[in-house]
Amino acid sequence: MISLDEAVTARLESHGARFEVLVDPDAALTIKRGEFEGDLEDVIAAEDVFENASRGDRPAESDVEEVFGTTEPLEIIPEVIQEGEIQITAEQRREMQEQKRRQLINTIARNAINPQMDGAPHPPDRIESALEETDFRIDPMEPVESQIDEALDALRPVIPIRFEEVTMAAQIPAEHAGSAQAQIRQFGDLVREEWQNDGSWIGVVEFPAGLQNDFYELVSEQSGGEGETKKVRDEEDIRTR
């Protein structure tokens, strides 16, 4: 379960009665869209149905039975969310908006590059500053993923930006290859790998372009600074690495 501080109220009024439940705001939105796949008990603050959640008042059992055909909270809670309205305070809205703004900025930073700077990533601070120059405002009630395209449209007149994946090759000396290759192959999608006669390892990995600096740091850290990296532009690059 979640804490009361994290929860929002979903309210349904029916048959002259009011029913309220306490639920995680993001989970409430996925439940409302019919996309929730988790465990309901993990995203609610109380396994209960209220008439007034802030006071802890409960509706008459006869009203609950009449409207829902059951008194089982775990069966009722999704219906209240799906059929009712999600109530959030101004403070909750601000907190949700800020949280999703940070998620949006980080998502864009992980995936976007500057096409005018040979595919260099944009730091989060630059994306944040550029967003502040636009009219774009994050909607706290919508998933971040559904707002990315609109945010990119707003950013393009301010900074050169596009989403892209890169393919990088890393060569790790034999003394570090065992542990390093395990970390590198998990960084993205492993395109191919080769073990050389001297025991060194070459791996080719594809991942979001905005993570290039993280990749360089990982290779350096895992190889004791002795690893080499190269951006792979075509199949010939892979063969000649």
Rank of each mutant, 00 (worst) to 15 (best):
R94Y: 14
P78F: 12
T107P: 06
Q99H: 12
N111W: 12
T89Q: 06
I105S: 00
E72N: 13
E85G: 09
I88E: 01
E66W: 00
E79N: 09
V67N: 00
E75C: 03
Q97Y: 05
R94W: 08
I105T: 03
I105F: 03
E91Y: 13
L74N: 10
S62L: 11
I81N: 00
I76A: 02
L104H: 03
E65Y: 05
I81C: 00
A90P: 07
I81M: 07
T89M: 08
E85C: 13
N111T: 14
Q97M: 15
I113E: 01
E85N: 13
V67M: 06
R94Q: 14
R101G: 11
N106S: 11
R58F: 02
P115A: 13
G84C: 10
A112I: 04
Q82L: 04
G69E: 05
E66P: 00
N111K: 15
Q103K: 12
S62K: 14
A109T: 00
N111Y: 03
E98D: 15
T70S: 14
E95F: 07
R110T: 06
E61W: 09
E98Y: 12
Q103E: 11
R102L: 14
V67C: 08
I113R: 07
V64F: 00
E65M: 12
Q103H: 13
P73R: 02
E85S: 10
N114Q: 10
A60W: 08
I81P: 03
V67G: 04
T107A: 13
P78K: 12
E98C: 06
E98L: 15
T71L: 02
R93D: 07
Q97L: 13
I113Q: 03
Q87V: 15
Q103I: 04
V64D: 02
V64Q: 02
K100Q: 03
Q92N: 07
L104P: 01
L74W: 13
Q99Y: 08
A90C: 09
I105M: 04
Q99L: 10
A60H: 09
P59C: 01
R102K: 14
V67Q: 00
Q116N: 06
Q103V: 09
T107Y: 04
I86L: 15
N111S: 14
V64C: 01
A90S: 13
I86F: 10
T71Y: 00
V64E: 05
R110Y: 12
Q116E: 15
N114D: 15
N114I: 06
R110Q: 13
I81G: 00
E66Y: 03
